[in-house]
Design a protein around this nucleic acid. Structure first.
Lengths: 235, 235
DNA sequence: GAGAATTCATTTGTCAGACATTTAAAAGTC
DNA sequence: GACTTTTAAATGTCTGACAAATGAATTCTC
């Protein structure tokens, strides 16, 4: 805390104004020149502060007369993308064990399964069936299989029709993919997984939370077993 | 997409190198002068790019000889703080209904209740009991009551001893606080809530997932009722 | 020779000034 | 009135300069 950069201090000051609601969505900030007078720093410093805020999606800038920096409305879409990136990095940089990440993912997924049973649309079911079909294709690489797996589970989560849930879970579901990519899937294990996926989709179609829950738990155990085999084979 | 700022492009380029693992943790980036040569832009532009990355916690900078910009290790602690800020803003800026946020929060909390039953330590239980005690104090403001409620539920989540879960759920649990602050709690409703909190803590202590689950669901229904009353009273 | 003090080179942080570019409003033109 | 041109304001970029920090190398002291 000796000397946090001026640009960081200014960014913090403006950020707090936005978070507290003092500045509201689409409101225009003072121009760079005005800010540099207010804070008594050079324009360079103000600009670096604004870039920091822009990187956090808090503001957007527009050039030209009557342009400037405006408070951004946070969209679930953008926030989700950033959330996924961060989650992925967190997992890869903190050598989180496969088990830990896996447990978190399935716990969360089980939480939204009942809601998804209630609200899933034909669209969600169609996406799941399509991914199941893809997963059965011969010649699919392991990476593509994992990506399809993620899409399948994303459809399940989105079926709950709760944007807050989708946002929070996207991080847990997508960040798993790099960890999954370590696993080599045999034809037999792929079949076992797609069978369970089919049972999950059937359960959602029949709106039977118990069926979905049981299949999810079986899937969790099964894939965890696969991962353990890979890990012990390496040691 | 006409002309994304140069500094944004450069930031993107470096960000991709970090995310892909091309640059690893604690690795030093080239100096600003070198980067400005590599990318054929001025140092100002490079600096703005680096500030963007710093705002995302991807790098840190150090002054002096042998200083420079270094790839940051993502810590759960920092990521969680950023996640909470974003979640809070998302909820306040997108007029997410109380019901939607509430549903997401309880679904997620129910998901980690069984794990918390297994693993909660004496510390977690003590935190919960302390918060329950605080919630019973007369003269507590509604804001303080809400804050204590958040702490109680955070302890429950942390009891699952899964950092990935804690990270993901922190957003859902903490972001609720501003929404809760709209509610006025009568002495009777406070009592009802702390009673349910006590049942939850008892269930965790007895390691009885069913008790916890039932109490959580009752709590969800009860507080949702309170919120609905507030909302209809306003209309 | 060992340790302390100093110097030095490198790098980030900040500033001022300049110019380019973009943009919408205002003024001019027919 | 519709179209074009001008203009003012704002961000984007570059250059050059200096301040401040910092670790390494050097010099000095004993």
């Amino acid at each position: 805390m000796n000397s946090p950069d001026l640009s960081a201090q200014i960014a913090k000051s403006i950020r707090e104004a936005i978070v507290s609601g003092e500045l509201s969505v689409d409101e225009r900030l003072p121009s760079e020149a005005e800010l540099s007078e207010q804070f008594e720093v050079g324009r360079t410093t103000v600009r670096e502060a604004l870039k920091r805020l822009a990187a956090q999606n808090l503001i957007r800038t527009q050039r030209g007369a009557f342009g400037g920096a405006f408070v951004n409305k946070q969209s679930f879409e953008d926030a989700q993308a950033a959330h996924i990136t961060t989650s992925t990095l967190l997992l890869s940089m903190n050598d989180v064990s496969f088990d830990t990440a896996w447990e978190a993912r399935f716990a969360l997924e089980c939480a939204c399964a009942p809601l998804s049973c209630e609200r899933r649309t034909a669209d969600h079911l169609a996406t799941m069936r399509a991914e199941i079909h893809r997963q059965g294709q011969p010649g699919l690489t392991d990476e593509a299989f994992c990506a399809s797996d993620v899409s399948f589970h994303r459809a399940l989560v989105d079926g709950a029709a709760n944007p807050v849930l989708s946002y929070q879970l996207a991080g847990a579901v997508e960040a798993i993919e790099p960890l999954m990519n370590m696993i080599t899937f045999t034809a037999r294990s792929r079949e076992a997984i797609t069978d369970l996926h089919t049972r999950i989709a059937d359960g959602l179609e029949a709106q039977s939370p118990n069926t979905v829950d049981m299949a999810l738990r079986e899937l969790e155990d099964y894939t965890r077993g696969l991962a353990r085999a890979v890990i012990s084979a390496r040691a």
